[in-house]
Simulated assay, not measured.
Amino acid sequence: MSRRDALLAALVAVIWGVNFVVIDLGMGDVPPLLFVAARFAAVVLIAIWFVPCPRVGWVKVAGVGAFMALGQFGLLYASMAAGMPAGLASLVLQAQVVLTILIAAGVLRERPTPAQLIGVVLGSGGLAIVGAGRGGHVPLAALALCLAAALSWAVGNVIARAAKAPGGLAMTVWSALVVPVPAFALSLLIDGPDAVARGIAAFGWEAALSTAYTVLAATLVGYGIYNGLLARNPASSVAPWILLVPVVGMLSAWLVLGETPNAAELGGGALLVAGVVVASVRAGRRGSERVQDHLPANADAALTSR
């Protein structure tokens, strides 16, 4: 991974870390799946007119939308509504890092380097330390939903990597097409028409601002960059950077929501950073070489034009 891509990956981690607090503040009395439907409907309405369709098969586009968008965020929002604190949700969701590397190794034959394996072990150890420090009070259903969201994200990562779309933003926007109708239908089915009606009535300025951030920053900017990184680099080089998300998420939850971190959270967060450095910096040159071996003949010009 190049230095430019590493800085972009760190920016995505900051945007997504803050996003957990934004979701918590905005959801309020709005049912979680209805909130997901509103988020991705806004993505489509704002951006689809200006972003060309990605030059990949519709099955892959729909797969990214189903797993990276609908599955991940439907389950994540439901987890937070069921009692998962914002800071801890940002941590547990990072199980996707290990799952991404394992799935990519099995499906795409992207074998992680020794440095990446060491980094994942360090990062996973940091996750375990933080989880042991404050995870006992979380409802089991909320924890299970968050872990399922991590699995869905990991599957979406591998589909996006396999698609190798030339523009990450195009994949992000067009894959959002598959989210609003299923999410709204599931909200009607699970929450009931009355709850959906109350949620629409409760959609005030907090929900509107939260949706604006998740649409413009977390989705269009964040996933636009992230899918572009997956198209240019092995998934095992990109995913470890997202271990920084819980560090930002817990810090922002501490400052905004009063979720004060304990010693385990602080120590585990430091270990997460160490894992990112080892997995991504030491393996960066080798990962970039492996990507160049698999790029089409005209890809170099496309990369330098960005």
Rank of each mutant, 00 (worst) to 15 (best):
N157C: 10
P32H: 00
G249D: 03
G83T: 03
V276E: 09
G136P: 01
A162M: 13
L243D: 03
A69S: 15
A82P: 02
Y77A: 11
M171W: 07
G228E: 06
H137L: 09
G83I: 04
L229Y: 01
L99W: 06
L99R: 07
G71R: 00
D29C: 02
L230I: 10
A301H: 10
G57W: 04
D24E: 11
G131A: 15
A299M: 03
F35S: 00
R4P: 00
H294Y: 11
S90H: 05
C146W: 01
L177A: 13
L151G: 06
D29N: 11
F35P: 00
V281I: 15
W205F: 13
G87I: 09
G136Y: 04
L177I: 14
P296I: 07
A274V: 15
R3W: 10
L102C: 12
T211G: 12
L188E: 04
L243K: 06
A212L: 15
P240I: 13
L7M: 12
L169K: 04
L34D: 00
A195I: 05
G131W: 14
G199L: 11
V277C: 12
V273L: 14
G125A: 08
G57D: 02
R3Y: 05
V43T: 07
A264D: 05
V181S: 06
D29P: 01
H137F: 06
F35H: 00
A37R: 01
G135P: 05
G287L: 06
R306M: 14
G123I: 11
A170E: 14
I190T: 02
A231N: 09
V178Q: 09
I200Y: 00
A66W: 03
L140D: 00
D194R: 15
W16Y: 01
I129R: 05
V56M: 06
S187I: 03
L147F: 07
V138D: 01
V256N: 09
A264H: 10
F203P: 03
Q72W: 03
L251H: 07
M84K: 00
V178I: 15
